[in-house]
Design a binder for these strands. Structure first.
Lengths: 145, 145
DNA sequence: TCACTTGTAATTATAATGATTACATGTAAC
DNA sequence: GTTACATGTAATCATTATAATTACAAGTGA
């Protein structure tokens, strides 16, 4: 299975808020760019707000970033939108048979490996900031246009 | 979401076949240790067989490893049981708005980052062999018993 | 032949996702 | 203060993957 697109959408939203900083980024505006329903955007925005990444107020149109672009890593976004729980990227079968040497040890043996693997994946996300993403998009736009 | 427990069960199965190499590892025997249904085991076994990790024959009870323990990495098992497709650990929303600079570039920008992240995760699995897992379990058993 | 095994198809319950409708609540311009 | 419009949320629905289970065809060997 795949990690929910909430993560990719979260990045999209934050980048667009930045690049549209002189305009008003309402949930409808953002939804049009992502190509989804405004409610989906508002739900994700709620998570980003809870994690202190955006400022948004009931009744007041438009969202703003709550931090500098360079202070938000992709790992921050990933954690904010709850796509993967800590130590739970890999699921391990429950209740293996304790009467069997393999059954009673397999969980403790593979858990640290799975955890290390998940952490390696997350480290890569931690080393990329939204600023990097915005710069890359700006660069692509200049070449194309 | 989490990666299917097929992966953990696949490891469990292969380790148990090895540690029970003097006995007969039928799907029912394996299912008892994993604590699941024999059909689940046979389905996973089919994938492991297709990838050349085990030898198993219709009508003939018992499975054997098709390679040396030290020649099977956790990545081999992971690939065999099809829990994550190539470049698809993270899903990216389809059809973002091409009229928006962010919409028309977001996919190309974040895809390489997601791919690098997935590869980092898989590299960790590649560096662990079934031999390592068996040794760890054996060590734990000696301490406990 | 018979008991037992593997290989598979089909069915079911459960859970997450993403889209959508509906509506309560907050904001600000008039 | 009313009105237009925005956010916040609950509820519903279709889709999809998982894991368990039943049923049965086909292979194996005593």
């Amino acid at each position: 299975m795949s990690i929910s697109s909430r993560f990719a959408v979260g990045i999209h939203i934050l980048v667009l808020i930045e690049m549209n900083k002189d305009g008003v980024s309402s949930s409808e505006f953002l939804a049009e760019s992502v190509n989804t329903n405004p409610v989906v955007i508002r739900k994700i925005m709620g998570m980003l707000k809870k994690s202190g990444l955006v400022e948004v107020h009931p009744g007041k149109a438009g969202a703003k970033l709550a931090k500098d672009l360079s202070d938000i890593t992709l790992l921050d976004v990933y954690k904010a939108v709850n796509v993967v729980q800590d130590r739970a990227l890999f699921s391990i079968h429950q209740n293996p048979n304790p009467k069997c040497p393999v059954g009673r040890n397999i969980q403790d043996t593979i858990e640290p490996i799975f955890e290390a693997s998940q952490i390696a994946m997350e480290k890569v996300l931690e080393n990329v900031t939204l600023e990097d993403v915005v710069k890359d998009i700006s660069k692509k736009e200049n070449i194309i246009c």
